[in-house]
């Protein structure tokens, strides 16, 4: 029997939706729409006056070295994080899903960094990376590798990789927990059947584990990509985009352009481009990765 719905019920449901929808429209949607407008002005953020300049900000972006460098850095950073984070989390998840004792303690330990504040994480690693007396350099000296010592975040050649390492430290455990949840949905019978057919460990991984892990791979790749493309906190806290723009990404460039250089219009144009790039990349990833997914 289908319950017949009167006008009154619909009004009541509308009342459930209204408060949050209103907040959403004003706080979230409003700025998205105005950002399209500001991106076509030359507003500096200080004065009331601004001129409408059409697509000039966008055409300027195409030949702006700072922007192109930030674009390169962002993509390289994202690629490294997505590959390494998933590449490290997957074997860890498989190890912790298997017979190791005290695995729940280990799981918990690996997840802790993900919930710490970005400030605490950033500062902890700044102490570790310090050129003089930092833990990393002291450890290298202790191992007789004194010549490997670096100013890890101070040297343009290493700074971006230093930040990638921090991100991995913080989020490998997060991806791992998602992989583990997926591993636990794979029925044990499949492996038993494969054992009877004489399949080895690698073969079982390729034929059973990997295909059935597709849903969590989709989630982890998309989450890591969006997270890295939008990464701001950890870069802002540690290097602010330096040294010599070596760690400048979309978000730090946007922040600097708008608030240090007072080019609100131009900064917003960077934000709009970033929005479309993230949208496009996530969309492509979801379409491609979802196609791989099979039901259990």
């Amino acid at each position: 029997m289908k319950w017949s719905l009167g006008k009154k019920e619909h009004l009541v449901w509308a009342a459930f939706i209204a408060p949050a929808f209103l907040i959403y429209t004003v706080i979230f949607l409003g700025p998205v729409i105005t950002s399209f407008y500001y991106s076509m002005t030359n507003w500096n953020g200080l004065y009331k006056t601004m001129d409408f300049v059409g697509l000039q900000n966008f055409t300027q972006l195409v030949s702006d070295d700072k922007f192109l460098r930030a674009l390169r850095n962002t993509f390289w950073f994202t690629l490294l994080v997505v590959i390494l984070q998933n590449g490290l989390a997957m074997p860890l998840a498989m190890a912790l899903d298997s017979k190791i004792k005290s695995k729940s303690v280990l799981r918990a330990a690996f997840f802790v960094p993900a919930i710490l504040s970005p400030l605490v994480v950033g500062y902890t690693w700044m102490y570790i990376y310090q050129p003089d007396g930092g833990l990393l350099n002291e450890l290298l000296a202790g191992l007789g590798l004194g010549s490997w010592q670096q100013s890890w975040l101070g040297d343009p050649a290493y700074a971006l990789y230093g930040i990638v390492a921090i991100v991995l430290w913080q989020f490998v455990g997060y991806s791992m927990v998602i992989f583990i949840a997926n591993l636990q949905t794979i029925p044990g019978d499949y492996y038993e059947a494969a054992d009877i057919d004489g399949a080895g460990g690698w073969r079982k991984f390729l034929s059973i584990t990997f295909p059935l892990m597709a849903p969590s791979i989709t989630i982890n790749v998309v989450l890591a990509s969006i997270g890295s493309l939008k990464a701001f906190d950890i870069i802002y806290v540690t290097t602010k985009g330096g040294p010599y723009y070596a760690t400048e990404t979309f978000t730090t460039l946007l922040y600097r352009t708008a608030f240090t250089e007072s080019s609100f219009g131009y900064g917003t144009a960077i934000g709009v481009v970033m929005f479309f790039i993230i949208l496009m990349i996530s969309f492509i990833q979801i379409v491609v990765l979802r196609r791989r997914e099979v039901g259990v």
Binding site: I27, G30, T268, G271
Partner: peptide, 19 residues
């Protein structure tokens, strides 16, 4: 549809500040 529109993106810092 309206809600999903900003799934991947906040309004951007500057317009948010002004708002």
């Amino acid at each position: 549809a309206v809600i999903m529109f900003t799934m991947f993106f906040g309004g951007g810092l500057i317009p948010t500040y002004i708002l």
